[in-house]
């Protein structure tokens, strides 16, 4: 029995649980900052824990028109989020698990199932949300791979741990361009303004939230937790690989969550069919970053 393997696996396991445990806090910090920027007091930064507990205690109602995929999708979504949290090599271990393509792919599987589930109840809002989510995802993914290409070119590696071994971006033209571009991707990927508004009640404008309208109770709690984990994973990835600052990881992650709130307060939501131009500009930034390197 390999003692190191057990040690590394349990350490990574602890890392996964820690990320899951801290995810609602990251979301809470963003919400609190947004409230302060709007001149409101806002709820406590621990409010998302209360919300999750509230949903967990509530009755779960499902539409009679839904099939098994509707019940299954939240669990798959959560599973992929946990798996991705497991793959992120933050803890110093000897494990070389994650190719970055696997990381992105695992999260894409979760999204795929959520989109399927959004169509399952056959409601107009769910379908609209699902089709828009796909539309945005199709635009995000090529740009995301471009950002990966940048890192791969820099480090000669496609595993996250390999990239991390070389170290994050440096504070130069290329670094700043890539940092800006990935930050925009982070917002887009996690349903933040200016692509999507996570705080709106206007169903007709919703993208990610539109897919969740049919969910309630525990299933809703699971989906929200998965979304929060996914969001924190992107924040950590950004803080680790793209933020060219010489600070501890926790400080960089905190800065990123606050930066998200500031960006959301400075911007309004884009017109739906302007998103492609916005992401095209992001791709342009990344190409420049590749060239500048």
């Amino acid at each position: 029995m390999d003692y190191h393997l057990i040690y590394d696996t349990s350490l990574t396991f602890i890392q996964m649980l820690t990320i899951a445990f801290l995810a609602p806090l990251a979301s809470g910090v963003t919400k609190k900052t947004k409230a302060l920027l709007q001149g409101r007091k806002g709820a406590s930064i621990f409010q998302d824990y209360n919300d999750l507990r509230k949903w967990w205690q509530k009755e779960t109602i499902t539409s009679p028109f839904t099939g098994p995929i509707f019940l299954l999708a939240p669990f798959i979504y959560l599973l992929t989020a946990f798996l991705a949290a497991f793959l992120l090599p933050l803890a110093e271990t000897g494990l070389r698990l994650a190719d970055i393509f696997v990381f992105v792919g695992v999260l894409a599987v979760g999204r795929f199932f959520m989109v399927l589930a959004s169509f399952d109840a056959a409601t107009a809002f769910g379908g609209m949300g699902g089709s828009r989510e796909t539309f945005v995802a199709v635009l995000i993914e090529p740009v995301l791979f471009l950002s990966i290409l940048l890192l791969a070119l820099r480090t000669g590696e496609t595993t996250i741990s390999g990239m991390m071994g070389v170290g994050g971006l440096e504070l130069n033209v290329s670094g700043i361009l890539a940092c800006t571009a990935f930050f925009i991707l982070l917002l887009a990927e996690n349903g933040r303004l200016p692509i999507d508004n996570p705080d709106t009640h206007l169903e007709l404008t919703m993208i990610h939230e539109g897919m969740l309208l049919e969910y309630s109770g525990r299933l809703l709690a699971i989906i929200h937790l998965a979304s929060m984990i996914k969001s924190l994973l992107y924040i950590l990835l950004f803080a680790f690989l793209f933020l060219p600052l010489d600070l501890p990881l926790a400080a960089k992650a905190l800065l990123t969550t606050i930066a998200i709130a500031i960006m959301e307060s400075l911007n309004n939501k884009l017109r739906l069919f302007k998103i492609q131009g916005y992401l095209l500009a992001t791709a342009g930034l990344l190409l420049l970053a590749v060239v500048a390197q």
Binding site: K34, L37, Q38, G39, R40, L193, P194, N197, D199, T200, L202, T205, E264, S265, L266, N267, N268, K269
Partner: peptide
């Protein structure tokens, strides 16, 4: 009106 465009700060103002 700003809420319709997801513009949070002026909405709160």
């Amino acid at each position: 009106l700003c809420a319709g465009a997801g513009f949070t700060v002026p909405n709160a103002m």
